[in-house]
Simulated assay, not measured.
Amino acid sequence: MQLGLIGLGKMGGNMRDRLREAGHEVVGFDQNPEISDATSLDDLIGKLSAPRVVWVMVPAGVTEATIDQLAPLLSAGDVVIDGGNSRFSDDGPRAERLGALGIGYVDAGVSGGVWGKQNGYALMVGGADEHVAQAMPIFESLKPEGEFGFVHAGGVGAGHYAKMVHNGIEYGLMHAYAEGYELLEKSEFVKDVPGVFKSWREGTVVRSWLLDLLDRALDEDPTLASLRGYADDTGEGRWTVEEAIRLAVPMHVISASLFARFESRQEDSPAMKAIAALRNQFGGHAIHKS
C-alpha cells in the first residue's frame, strides 16, 4: 500500500522504516531535507495516487497548522490520520472541516516510542469504519505480530482519548517504580538495588516492560547519578485528570503522579517553606535557613 507520512522524527522515521520493511511504499516529508523524500507538502501529494492516505506525525503544537496546509492539496476520498499526541477534543472539529471537503479523518493513539520499529506499535484508532478500513493494511504492519496491539476504539476522538488514558496509567506505573527505587536506595538493608529490580523481571506480578527499561537504565548508571530529578509532562496526564474531574472518577494514583512531576521542577518548594514556617510558629519546631 502507498502512504504519505509527514514528520520523520524519532517516531515517524522509525515508522517509515518498519512500513518499508513490510513492503509498503512510503513517501515521507520532513522539514529536514536530508531525511525527506519530498521537497514540500505539494510535492508529497503529487507523488501519491488517489485515493490517498496521509499520516501526520508531528508534535501536537503544529498538527493543526500542518493539517490546514494539507487539506487544500487533497481530494475527496482521501484520508488523513493524526498519529500525534493531540487532545481528543480537537479531533471532532478537525474531522468536520475535512469531512466538508469529502476527506476522511482518523485519530490514532500510538505507543511504542523508540522501540516501535523493532517491537511494533500499539495502536488505538478512532474514526468511521470505512476510513479505518482504508488504512488497515498500514495498521496491520505497524502493530506487533499476534492478537494484540490494535483497537478501533470508537468514533472520531476515541483513539486519542484511549491514548490519553494509556499515558495517565503510564504516569502512575512509572511513579510506583520510582518510589520503590528511592526506598530501596535509602534502606540500610539492601546492598544491591539494581539486583533487586533484576530479580523482579521474571516470576513476579510487578514485571513489565517499564520494569525492564528501568533495569536497563540501572545497568547503564547503577545510582542514576548522571541524571537530574526533573520530569516534564506532555499534556496527556493533565488531560486525564481533567477528564476524571469532569466525570467524577476518583483518580488518586494518576493525579498524585502528575503532581509529583510538577514538584520535580521546583528547586526549593514554596509549599514546603510554608509548612516549615507553620511548624515553627505553632510548635517551635526547628527550621533550616537557606
Score class of each variant (00 low, 15 high):
68 D>V: 15
73 L>G: 04
70 L>T: 02
93 P>L: 10
81 I>Y: 01
74 L>S: 03
67 I>S: 02
89 S>R: 05
85 N>T: 13
71 A>V: 05
69 Q>W: 02
81 I>H: 05
62 V>W: 07
81 I>F: 04
77 G>A: 07
86 S>C: 14
58 V>Y: 05
79 V>R: 10
85 N>W: 13
102 G>D: 00
85 N>R: 12
63 T>C: 15
80 V>S: 11
95 A>N: 10
58 V>W: 08
78 D>R: 11
78 D>L: 15
85 N>S: 12
97 R>Y: 08
91 D>K: 10
85 N>C: 13
61 G>F: 07
101 L>E: 00
97 R>S: 08
75 S>P: 03
99 G>T: 07
79 V>P: 13
87 R>D: 14
84 G>E: 01
69 Q>L: 07
90 D>T: 12
63 T>A: 15
87 R>M: 10
59 P>H: 14
58 V>R: 04
96 E>I: 10
68 D>C: 06
81 I>N: 02
82 D>W: 08
85 N>Q: 06
101 L>F: 02
88 F>L: 00
102 G>V: 01
73 L>M: 06
62 V>R: 07
60 A>K: 09
87 R>G: 06
97 R>T: 06
102 G>W: 04
103 I>A: 02
59 P>M: 14
63 T>R: 09
91 D>S: 15
81 I>G: 01
64 E>N: 05
96 E>C: 03
97 R>I: 04
66 T>N: 01
71 A>R: 08
91 D>M: 14
72 P>T: 09
75 S>F: 11
98 L>R: 07
94 R>W: 11
64 E>G: 03
77 G>L: 09
89 S>T: 15
75 S>I: 08
82 D>F: 06
63 T>Q: 12
63 T>K: 06
100 A>Y: 03
74 L>V: 08
90 D>P: 01
66 T>F: 00
67 I>R: 08
94 R>Q: 13
65 A>H: 09
60 A>D: 14
62 V>D: 05
63 T>N: 12
61 G>S: 09
75 S>N: 15
101 L>G: 00
60 A>S: 15
88 F>G: 00
78 D>V: 14
70 L>G: 01
82 D>K: 11
65 A>V: 13
98 L>V: 03
84 G>D: 02
68 D>Y: 10
88 F>T: 00
93 P>G: 10
58 V>P: 01
83 G>R: 07
68 D>T: 15
64 E>W: 00
90 D>W: 06
74 L>T: 02
79 V>Y: 11
98 L>I: 09
81 I>P: 03
77 G>Q: 08
73 L>P: 02
94 R>N: 06
60 A>Y: 08
65 A>N: 11
76 A>S: 14
72 P>N: 02
90 D>Q: 11
84 G>K: 03
61 G>Y: 01
78 D>I: 11
81 I>K: 05
88 F>C: 01
82 D>E: 14
103 I>L: 06
92 G>Y: 02
67 I>M: 12
77 G>H: 09
66 T>A: 03
63 T>M: 15
78 D>T: 12
89 S>H: 14
69 Q>H: 09
88 F>Q: 00
